[in-house]
Measured scan of single mutants.
Amino acid sequence: MSIQHFRVALIPFFAAFCLPVFAHPETLVKVKDAEDQLGARVGYIELDLNSGKILESFRPEERFPMMSTFKVLLCGAVLSRVDAGQEQLGRRIHYSQNDLVEYSPVTEKHLTDGMTVRELCSAAITMSDNTAANLLLTTIGGPKELTAFLHNMGDHVTRLDRWEPELNEAIPNDERDTTMPAAMATTLRKLLTGELLTLASRQQLIDWMEADKVAGPLLRSALPAGWFIADKSGAGERGSRGIIAALGPDGKPSRIVVIYTTGSQATMDERNRQIAEIGASLIKHW
Rank of each mutant, 00 (worst) to 15 (best):
W227G: 01
A182E: 07
I140T: 13
M184F: 08
L120A: 06
Q86H: 14
F228D: 01
E166N: 15
R271C: 12
K53S: 14
T27W: 03
S128D: 03
L49H: 05
P60L: 14
D48E: 05
A222Q: 07
D250Y: 06
V78A: 10
A276S: 11
R91F: 06
L223I: 07
M209Y: 00
K284I: 15
E62G: 08
L120R: 02
T261R: 04
A245P: 01
V117H: 03
Y260P: 00
E166Y: 14
A230I: 11
V72E: 04
T131M: 15
L197W: 02
C121M: 08
Q203D: 06
K53C: 12
M153V: 07
Y260K: 00
E210Q: 15
K32D: 06
K284S: 14
D174Q: 11
G279H: 03
R176V: 13
M127G: 13
D177P: 02
E108V: 15
G43K: 01
N134K: 03
E35H: 03
V29A: 11
I206C: 12
E145A: 08
P105I: 11
A124D: 02
G39T: 07
T186N: 15
A215K: 05
N173G: 09
T186W: 11
Y260W: 02
A123E: 04
R238D: 13
A276F: 11
T186E: 15
G216I: 10
T126E: 09
N152G: 09
P217I: 09
I125Q: 03
D269V: 08
H24I: 08
L135C: 06
K252R: 09
V29I: 10
Q265F: 06
A123F: 03
T187M: 08
W208R: 01
M180N: 13
G141Y: 06
S122A: 11
W227F: 06
G251K: 15
A280S: 13
L205A: 03
I206K: 13
G248V: 01
R41L: 12
N173P: 10
K53N: 12
S264G: 13
A148E: 07
M66C: 07
R162L: 04
R159Y: 07
A84L: 13
D129W: 00
G52T: 06
G242Y: 00
T193V: 11
D231S: 05
K30G: 05
Q274W: 08
R189Y: 06
F58K: 15
G52D: 10
E166W: 12
L199S: 10
P224E: 08
P65Y: 03
S57V: 11
P60S: 13
V117C: 04
D113E: 14
T138H: 15
R189T: 07
L192E: 02
E277Y: 06
A182H: 11
T69N: 01
T131E: 04
R220P: 02
S57Y: 07
L74Y: 01
A34P: 02
T107P: 01
G141M: 13
K190T: 15
A245D: 00
H94M: 07
M127N: 15
L38V: 10
K32S: 11
V31T: 07
V31E: 00
G154R: 13
V157P: 03
M180C: 07
D177Y: 01
R81D: 05
E108N: 15
I45L: 15
G142R: 04
N98F: 07
T107A: 07
L89T: 12
T198E: 10
G226V: 04
R118M: 07
I275W: 03
D269P: 13
Q97E: 11
P181R: 01
A183L: 10
T179P: 00
L73G: 12
R162M: 05
P181G: 04
R118K: 14
M67E: 03
S254F: 15
E56I: 05
A222L: 11
T178W: 02
G39N: 08
L55H: 13
K190W: 15
T179Y: 03
V78H: 04
F64P: 01
V117P: 04
N152K: 15
M127C: 08
G239H: 04
N152R: 12
E102H: 06
G194K: 07
K284G: 11
P172F: 10
K109Y: 10
R202Y: 06
Q203S: 06
E102D: 08
L191C: 12
L192A: 07
S240N: 05
S233E: 00
D250H: 07
K284R: 14
R118Q: 14
P217A: 13
C121H: 01
G52C: 04
M115E: 04
Q88C: 10
I243K: 00
F64V: 05
A34D: 02
K190E: 15
A34W: 06
G194N: 12
N134Y: 02
A225T: 08
S96K: 09
S128C: 02
A200L: 13
I243Y: 07
K190L: 15
E145I: 09
E270G: 14
C121N: 02
A34C: 14
V106N: 15
R81C: 05
L223C: 05
N130M: 01
L247E: 03
A133F: 02
A148W: 10
L28C: 12
P65S: 05
T198V: 07
P165N: 09
I206V: 10
I54D: 12
E277K: 06
H94I: 06
L218Y: 02
S233Q: 00
A230D: 01
P25W: 14
M184P: 00
P165S: 08
L191H: 04
E119G: 13
I283C: 15
G85W: 10
S201W: 03
A222N: 13
D33S: 07
E277P: 02
M66Y: 04
H151V: 08
Y260S: 03
A215N: 05
G226W: 10
G154W: 04
A185Y: 00
L136C: 04
Q265K: 08
I140L: 11
K284L: 12
I45N: 03
G216K: 13
R91V: 05
N272C: 05
E108D: 14
T131N: 04
L150Y: 11
T112C: 10
S254V: 09
K32I: 14
L28I: 09
S128P: 01
S221P: 14
G194V: 06
L192P: 00
D161E: 10
E35C: 04
V72I: 09
R81F: 07
S254W: 07
G85N: 06
W227M: 03
M153T: 08
E119S: 12
A222C: 06
D250I: 07
Y103W: 07
R271P: 09
M127S: 12
L188V: 06
L150K: 01
K71C: 00
N98R: 09
V157N: 10
K190D: 15
K144V: 08
W163N: 10
K252E: 10
P249M: 12
P172G: 09
E169D: 09
R189E: 12
A77M: 12
V42R: 01
G141E: 14
E175Q: 10
T126Y: 04
F58I: 13
G114F: 07
T198N: 10
N134A: 02
E210A: 14
V29F: 09
V72L: 05
E108A: 15
T112G: 13
L79Y: 03
S201T: 10
R271E: 10
L146P: 01
T107I: 05
G251E: 15
H285L: 09
W208V: 03
G279S: 12
I45W: 03
A266M: 13
G236Y: 02
A266P: 05
A246V: 09
L192Q: 04
Q37F: 09
L282V: 08
Q203K: 06
T187K: 03
R176D: 07
S221V: 14
V42T: 12
L47V: 09
D177M: 00
A182F: 13
K32V: 11
S221N: 14
T262L: 07
A77F: 05
E62D: 07
A40V: 14
K71L: 00
V117E: 04
R255Y: 02
L205T: 03
G90L: 10
L137Q: 05
G90M: 13
A185I: 03
M209L: 08
M115N: 03
T139V: 14
L146A: 13
K232V: 00
L135G: 03
M153Q: 11
F70I: 15
